[in-house]
Amino acid sequence: MLITEQQTIATYYNALVNREPSYVGTFYVGVKTTSIFCIATCRARKPKRENVEFYSEFKDALDAGYRPCKICKPTENAQAAPKQVEQAIELVKADLKQKVTDQHLREQGIAPEFVRRWFKQHYGMTFQTYQRMFRINSAFEELKKGNTATDTAFNAGFNSLSGFGYTYKQVVGHSPKTQADKQIILISRLTTPIGPMFVCATEKGICLLEFVDRRMLETEFKDLQKRLKAQILMGENAHIKALKQQLESYFNGNLTHFTVPLDTPGTDFQQQVWQCLQTIDYGETASYQQQAQKINNPKAVRAVASANGFNRVAIVIPCHRVIGKDGSLTGYGGGLARKKWLLEHEQRHRVANQ
């Protein structure tokens, strides 16, 4: 939303001039003379008051035609985990047997209230729930290797087998005894030049990559869990780590084709459409009609468009490369501003690499 209240504008401009870190993510400032937008702590030379306008969300700045500043990288740094949150996460990963309490956080100079607010805002869960998911994910991996429930409970930091069994069933949906034929979906968060994203993966491959502000994201999570008969837990596996590396290379303009394995449940027709999407070359576009013709079903234009909309793996399965027959941008789950950005990014780097 464009900020119009004069007192708020004055406050934000003062924060911009003074590079106030407490305002990072609170506003995004568009500089009219350069067509870029920044966060409060940007090191670039400060623009005059009459040459800026303020937005409450980075998507609003993108929609208004501004590009992310290459110095402060607003869509990355405003959404990345603050140092205190990163420290709290490292405490969790360092020793799964040890529950990280408010006291432990304070001993490390970390404000537990700040950590709780950040997790609630950016993950939609409490920090304690985040910890439990990591511990249960570790337990799941141990059980898969054939470890006993007793040893697994102890290694995961539980004081009793009954407490472990109860928590495990609450999180995963079944008891540790029925572990053998079950699977889980791991979820992690990452930042990109056009906003933060969630990535999910099974043992087979990536099953979801979506912007965190996508509408109906919760519905997508529920549908994915139902289709794969698995629960979503916080964590990373080799597929998620590989995708994060490939996405970094993609956004740097150095990668034009993703090789990470995918696990995308859907109908036969959806699978056909998603496979066809991956044949659109980097830096190129195609219409829904052209896609329908490629799959030898020229009358299925609307069905193709619908299948595109059900694609859960953004960017990797490049539905952003599909445009209207007249060349216009059409619907995109991440927003048309992001679609425009992605297309321009690919076209620019394609030319540069030729």
Score class of each variant (00 low, 15 high):
157 G>Y: 06
162 S>L: 12
116 R>K: 13
96 L>V: 14
157 G>P: 07
97 K>I: 01
163 G>W: 04
116 R>V: 01
141 E>M: 04
109 G>Q: 04
180 A>S: 11
181 D>P: 04
121 Q>E: 15
181 D>K: 15
181 D>W: 07
180 A>L: 03
105 L>H: 06
104 H>E: 14
125 M>G: 06
107 E>M: 08
169 K>A: 15
155 N>S: 11
170 Q>T: 15
157 G>E: 08
171 V>Q: 09
146 G>Q: 07
173 G>P: 08
102 D>E: 13
162 S>P: 01
111 A>R: 08
121 Q>G: 02
180 A>I: 09
179 Q>C: 12
150 T>H: 02
178 T>G: 05
106 R>D: 13
109 G>E: 03
110 I>P: 03
170 Q>P: 03
150 T>D: 08
124 G>K: 06
178 T>W: 07
142 E>A: 11
94 A>G: 06
168 Y>T: 06
112 P>L: 08
174 H>M: 10
157 G>C: 12
155 N>L: 14
128 Q>P: 00
131 Q>N: 03
181 D>Q: 15
98 Q>C: 10
168 Y>E: 02
97 K>P: 02
142 E>D: 11
146 G>M: 04
164 F>D: 05
94 A>Y: 10
166 Y>Q: 14
110 I>W: 00
151 D>N: 13
146 G>L: 06
135 R>W: 06
142 E>C: 10
98 Q>S: 09
110 I>Q: 00
138 S>H: 12
169 K>V: 03
143 L>Q: 00
149 A>F: 01
96 L>H: 02
181 D>H: 15
155 N>I: 06
175 S>N: 11
98 Q>N: 11
147 N>T: 10
97 K>G: 06
140 F>E: 03
157 G>H: 09
149 A>D: 04
175 S>L: 12
99 K>H: 14
136 I>Q: 02
122 H>P: 02
183 Q>R: 10
121 Q>I: 13
152 T>G: 01
171 V>E: 09
109 G>M: 04
165 G>C: 12
153 A>C: 12
105 L>P: 05
123 Y>M: 10
119 F>Y: 08
122 H>E: 05
147 N>P: 00
153 A>D: 08
120 K>R: 15
95 D>A: 07
165 G>D: 04
178 T>V: 13
149 A>S: 13
128 Q>T: 15
136 I>H: 08
121 Q>N: 13
139 A>T: 02
164 F>P: 07
141 E>C: 07
153 A>T: 03
167 T>D: 13
177 K>T: 13
139 A>P: 01
107 E>P: 01
97 K>M: 12
161 L>C: 02
